[in-house]
Amino acid sequence: MKKIIGLCLILAVILMSCGPGKIEEYSKSIFAMDTILEFRIYGNKNAKKALDKAIERVKEIEDRMSATKEDSDVAKINENAGKQPVKVHDDTFYVIKKALEYGKLTEGDFDITIRPLVELWDILSDKPRIPDAEEIEEKLALVDYRKVKLDEENKTVFLEEEGMGIDLGAIAKGYAGDEVTRILKEAGVKSALINLGGNVIVIGRKPDGSLWRIGIQDPRSEETGKSHIGVLEVEDVTIVSSGDYERYMVDIYEKTGVRYHHIFDPKTGSPARSGLMACTIVASSSTDADALSTSLFIKGKDEGFKLIEELGQAEAIAITEDKEIYMTEGLENMFEQYGESYKLSH
């Protein structure tokens, strides 16, 4: 009798592992938001549906917040700069409001009204060129986040001066990350890895119960031959990096070797030069991580770390041009260095 019970137990275990609620891996890579979005989620059939829904949501966010897509909220706001307020979707309004909060928090280092400079430099055009000081001066006069006027009641956004423009490139991907996380969690997904063009989000732990191992991009992998400088072992967080290696041109014409990258300093009108090659933010909100990562890159290590420590919601890594790695205290136990090209400093 005992043996029959034993047999039944064994059978039950086997059957349970292949029942209808079976946990499976669903992976998908798509092109959107000017980059590749990769999803790896673990769950049942609901999870698969949730993944499709999450991808739809990302595309919707892109359609509303892209600066280059015709008919996007952002394009309409920019077209009507100096003319009239534009009614926008609730999510666009939320993201702009959030961005302006970061403008205030960083004393203007994080500024979404940077668009005229992005267009002037046009780093990724066929024939990139370095604008002269006069041109930069002229566009800089149009950059001021305080000239973005929000109307809570009517959900409208107004840029006070003609020629102004906003660019949500430094925050919209973060917001998309939070939305994807929300949709997947609501559908009961307990384990997932999402990489939105470099912004990594992990839900829970890996299906085997271990922590996710996320590499931090080596900003000079061409020289070092390594893809990452180290690994963070994490669960339930979002990791966002910014750096001069993402989109850039090297000044080969003047042979100065200077890197002209895509993160502009609203105070100089040129690519930010704060002594950092790259930086990373680890936080629970991807919107915040995205905005903070750009802010840290522009502010530099000392000022940036000070801000992050004051806010107390995020941890950070900074890689300086002297090839030193700094990090906030909370990360020290999670970080494992890889390779010897950089010096870990405290």
Binding site: N199, W212, I214, Q217, H228, V231
Partner: peptide, 10 residues
């Protein structure tokens, strides 16, 4: 070694 990672934040 160290290549044993799930993804890269870049």
């Amino acid at each position: 070694d160290g290549g044993n990672i799930d993804s890269i934040a870049s």
